[in-house]
Design a binder for these strands. Structure first.
Lengths: 142, 142
DNA sequence: CCTTGTTGTAACAAGGTTTGTTTCAAACGG
DNA sequence: CCGTTTGAAACAAACCTTGTTACAACAAGG
């Protein structure tokens, strides 16, 4: 179970909110969103909490509360979603320090860090090419 | 601890083998490699096993056994290493099926799969740009 | 053929992550 | 003040990753 589906869940949430909005329903509760994702409302609130902290959605509390998109679906890219829900770098370094007496042990981490930065950059660039509106369009075509 | 450092470990292993080779020592035991990575030889054997199955290293068994690079460091890219050690896709889909009655629940997986394929493609393209020889060069510069 | 060094693999522990669930205080519109 | 909903904590179940021990299989060299 330890394989992370947060980007998928958050994108699903936003795509569903985009469709509801187009249908005239701006405000959705976590329970309504959970019905589409088919999971527990608490899971959805956790995801929406990430998206709120990133400024992608807004929340209204109290009776008649719920969630609203803070931007149009065209203005939210999958990079925005990725940044909202992923914190760890793509590839982890050694969990314990390598042998710093060895020239490879000493120099490999900065060397690899440089490569990993480039890879993350490429990934981010690719994610930025797709918006929630694009995902919704393609979702409805399937 | 559940954050995967396999690409880092395998690249470290190959980089160290490349340096040893340049110094005239083609054959290394898992214990010798483990000394540079600063971990248990069994961990290294697991990593080398992945690399062997991918055809990047060869093994000699029996007394005086050990591991040899199967290609020159210039001919091994980080994409080769990634393919050898990573099996799961980058982003997981929902762990439980979404609600297929909902148009988003129904169409989101193929739509996202399409995007994820593109992202993985970009990642692979970037990894392919760097060889073990490149990593070694940069490692010794640090 | 035997000794010896090394691999391949299984089994297990420790610690971490992820999802799902229950619970309840806090917020707030009406 | 009531009723609905969020935010967050606490916990369980399942799984992953690393590290460790143990040992059979293998083969080179005497």
């Amino acid at each position: 179970m330890a394989e992370n589906s947060r980007l998928t869940i958050a994108t699903h949430v936003l795509t569903w909110m985009a469709l509801a909005r187009r249908r005239g329903q701006d405000l959705l509760t976590s329970e309504q969103v959970a019905a589409s994702v088919n999971t527990n409302p608490v899971i959805i609130r956790r995801s929406l909490g990430d998206l709120r902290r990133a400024g992608l959605v807004e929340v209204r509390r109290g009776a008649g509360a719920g969630w609203i998109l803070a931007r149009t679906p065209e203005e939210i890219t999958l990079l925005d979603v990725y940044n909202a829900v992923e914190q760890h770098p793509l590839f982890a370094m050694h969990h314990t320090d390598p042998n710093l007496e060895c020239p490879v042990g000493k120099g490999i981490r900065p060397a690899l860090g440089h490569v990993y930065d480039g890879v993350e950059q490429a990934l981010r660039h690719e994610l930025q090419r797709t918006s929630i509106a694009d995902v919704l369009k393609r979702t409805l075509q399937e």
